[in-house]
């Protein structure tokens, strides 16, 4: 039987880290938030900009996925119209738990300046939202900060707590 040649107490320490299940799970979840590219309007351009060279979203472990089944964060970037509302719900239902939603921009938060017949007055009428991000359009830095806030929120959560029934039916 091979003997351990490494003296763990001296060279670099033990390859063991003590933590709680909550912490390790939340660490994993909060630092690999894969976002569904839910670009709807102008905010989508800022969302792309924050993913591109200057703002570089990959540093946060956030990469954009095209499939809802691979994503755990939905960034609703832009105006949600009544014609589209059905599809956002469908895609939200297709995402696996745990899932979070950032509502990016005034239009997604409240309908914003588009107080008209065709605009859903806030995506929270259709899907539950975790973070509302103001601005028209919010700058990429704002979106980055929103993701950091969401990460803090995830770290505070208990990892295996049962999902509270959210407000919508």
């Amino acid at each position: 039987m091979a003997q351990h040649q490494v003296n763990y107490t001296q060279s670099g320490g033990l390859p063991v880290a003590l933590t709680t299940v909550d912490k390790i799970l939340n660490w994993g979840r909060s630092n690999s938030l894969w976002a569904l590219t839910y670009g709807l309007a102008c905010c989508a351009i800022e969302m792309m900009a924050s993913g591109a060279s200057r703002y570089d979203f990959d540093r946060f472990g956030t990469i954009f996925r095209a499939s809802p089944r691979q994503a755990d964060l939905m960034i609703v970037a832009g105006t949600l119209t009544k014609k589209h509302a059905e599809f956002i719900r469908r895609l939200y239902d297709q995402m696996t738990e745990p899932k979070w939603v950032i509502s990016m921009g005034s239009c997604a938060n409240t309908g914003g300046m588009f107080n008209t017949y065709a605009t859903v007055q806030g995506v929270d009428r259709v899907i539950p939202v975790d973070l509302y991000l103001p601005g028209c359009a919010p700058r990429p830095e704002t979106l980055q900060y929103a993701v950091m806030l969401l990460q803090q929120k995830i770290r505070r959560e208990s990892a295996n707590k049962s999902q509270k029934p959210k407000r919508l039916v």
């Binding site: 509302a85 059905e86 107080n115 008209t116 017949y117 259709v126």
Partner: peptide
């Protein structure tokens, strides 16, 4: 047609989804 829509328009997404 009012700018903010009639009753049908205002409840459209709720009626359709839920």
């Amino acid at each position: 047609y009012p700018l903010e829509g009639d009753e049908f328009a205002q409840w459209y997404e709720v009626d359709k989804i839920f």
